[in-house]
């Protein structure tokens, strides 16, 4: 899932770079001296659609939402969310295990609610036929992609919650600690 998100992120990077390049070249082709020097060529390139990618903005928005949802499962399973453990470090290990299990269960609940509500949001977008501005593709397509990733996040989070509860009950170590990540 994270790899899929990474691929989409890469595509967005490339798309943006192509769009910026197209926009810059489009500007160059319209410069007076370029037009007089290479008139037909410049015009030909422009007619062929040399310019920014139409709707690059909307594609980045739709793509980045999917990317974030697709990154969530990895963050759940690797315990990547930021925490403050300075105060709990004075508590016994068993107390820490109880807290971690509790928070992980809550996290799973939150992600399940988020996925469910995202589904409702998608239904609204379908019902009202909302589209994007320039490309005019249905907004619910973007919601659907994000929803699929959000379901994965909810599933993975339910699994990690179960694992934390198991750790709490048996004292075994299954998953990494919370909060070992940079930003």
């Amino acid at each position: 899932m994270a790899i899929l998100g990474g691929l989409v992120l890469t595509v967005l990077v490339l798309l943006t770079v192509v769009s910026v390049t197209g926009r810059a070249l489009n500007g160059v082709m319209h410069l007076g001296w370029v037009e007089s020097l290479a008139g037909p060529l410049a015009q030909g390139l422009l007619d062929a659609g040399l310019g920014p990618i139409t709707g690059d903005f909307e594609l980045v928005e739709a793509g980045i939402a999917f990317t974030i949802f697709a990154f969530l499962p990895l963050a759940q399973i690797s315990g990547s969310h930021a925490t403050v453990d300075i105060f709990t470090s004075f508590l016994p290990i068993s107390a820490n295990r109880v807290l971690m299990a509790l928070w992980e269960v809550l996290f799973a609940a939150a992600l399940i609610v988020i996925a469910w509500r995202l589904y409702e949001g998608m239904q609204g977008k379908m019902r009202y036929n909302e589209t994007t501005f320039l490309l005019q593709f249905p907004v619910w397509w973007a919601f659907a992609a994000s929803f699929a990733a959000a379901v994965m996040a909810a599933l993975v989070s339910s699994f990690t919650a179960a694992a934390r509860v198991w750790e709490m009950l048996t004292g075994a170590s299954v998953l990494p600690e919370f909060g070992e990540v940079d930003h």
Partner: peptide, 26 residues
Amino acid sequence: VLSKLKLETYSTFSSYSLSIVPMFLL
């Protein structure tokens, strides 16, 4: 609060300005 959640996760995650964050990290 449940109504708010229908759109707010998507609209938070689909922010063009915030998409800068994963790109800078990468």
